[in-house]
Simulated assay, not measured.
Amino acid sequence: MPDPATALSTPVGPVEAAIRQRLAADLTPTSLVVVNESASHAGHRGDDGSGESHFRVEIEAPSFAKLSRVARQRLVNRSLADLLDGHIHALAIRARAPGEAA
């Protein structure tokens, strides 16, 4: 599993940048980590060769308080809907409210 600190020092592609921008704007997170895991899936089904098809998002936002895991994931998916429709093949989501265990 890539180290989030290392992931931040690597070049960010347009899809990853869009994920960060949209989640920041729509959900106002207190913590946001986006990891491009596409290299681990090179040559697999869903790999479009762009290097930006598989992502992991770890997000903490006050808007997740009192919501179920499914409701939280729906908020993230709604924010990224068109990217999920055409650019992102796989998205792992870990969403929590402030104060919840990581």
Rank of each mutant, 00 (worst) to 15 (best):
G43D: 10
A65W: 12
N77S: 11
P14Y: 04
A102I: 12
R96K: 12
Q21W: 08
D85W: 12
H41K: 11
V34S: 12
A25Y: 10
R78K: 14
L91I: 10
S68L: 05
A25N: 15
P29H: 02
V57C: 01
S50K: 01
P11W: 11
L27Y: 01
R69D: 13
L84R: 09
S68K: 05
R56P: 06
A65F: 07
A71V: 02
E100N: 03
H54Y: 11
V35M: 14
V76P: 07
Q73H: 15
A61V: 07
T28Y: 09
H89M: 06
A90K: 03
A90F: 06
E16T: 06
A5W: 07
L80S: 00
A71Y: 06
A39K: 12
D48V: 04
D82Q: 14
T10C: 08
D48M: 03
R22N: 10
A65P: 08
D3L: 09
R22A: 02
L8R: 15
A81C: 06
H54Q: 06
S79R: 09
I93G: 03
G51C: 05
R69V: 15
L91P: 07
A95F: 03
A81T: 08
M1D: 12
S31G: 02
D26Y: 04
L75Y: 13
D48W: 09
D3I: 08
P11I: 10
A71T: 00
P98N: 03
K66R: 15
L27D: 01
L84P: 07
G86P: 13
T30M: 12
A61I: 07
